[in-house]
């Protein structure tokens, strides 16, 4: 994967497949401390203990189309390439979290990439009655986004997947990010 944002797309798909109703993405860019953290947390069905030890093995997968699963293996490789690590914890049906850390300025760290497209495509893939919370820290600043807030405004008659609503969300996030990154 060329961008870390694509890894996030990939990992969140696991949360969706695990029937999570709340998925939280946490990104922290701390340039001074040379640290990048990406955390995906969900309340899905979780990962059994015996699977956790072998989860980043490419030949471990819950998919049924074939016996190879590369998502977490690729993310782990991306972290290790730049002196980071991948930690996965899971309490079944309560909380599962995937925490990827990177050395921010490491030459081999892939760019974060297009997080806006990541958020939008995740919203499109969410099952009904599930929500996404996004929290992005950039040094001392923070941007948050919560589909529950959007849904409370648009009500029941309109789906969040409506193109017009998605477009508003896109502009909202674009604005949030530009505020976040400005000096």
């Amino acid at each position: 994967m060329r961008e870390l944002s694509l890894h996030i797309n990939d990992i969140v798909q696991n949360s969706i497949d695990a029937d999570a109703t709340i998925i939280k993405i946490f990104v922290k860019e701390d340039i001074e401390k040379d640290n990048l953290v990406i955390k995906v947390e969900d309340n899905g069905k979780g990962i059994p203990k015996e699977k956790l030890d072998v989860i980043t093995d490419p030949f471990e997968t819950s998919r049924t189309t074939r016996r190879v699963g590369l998502g977490l293996s690729l993310l782990e490789a991306a972290t290790q390439r730049c002196e980071g690590s991948l930690i996965i914890k899971s309490i079944r049906n309560v909380k599962t979290e995937v925490v990827a850390t990177f050395r921010y300025n490491h030459i081999d760290r892939a760019p974060l990439g297009n997080m806006i497209d990541t958020i939008l495509s995740i919203i499109l893939s969410l099952k009904e009655n599930s929500d996404l919370i996004y929290e992005h820290h950039y040094n001392n600043k923070m941007f948050t986004f919560d589909t529950r807030e959007i849904k409370s405004i648009i009500g029941n008659q309109v789906s969040i997947n409506q193109i017009e609503i998605m477009n508003w969300i896109k502009e909202y996030i674009e604005e949030g990010f530009s505020n976040l990154m400005e000096v």
């Binding site: 405004i153 648009i154 009500g155 309109v158 017009e164 609503i165 508003w168 502009e171 604005e175």
Partner: peptide, 13 residues
């Protein structure tokens, strides 16, 4: 980007 704007989009939708 205002909430009012989102509400207007909802009504239009």
């Amino acid at each position: 980007k205002s909430i009012q704007e989102l509400e207007a989009i909802r009504n239009k939708t």
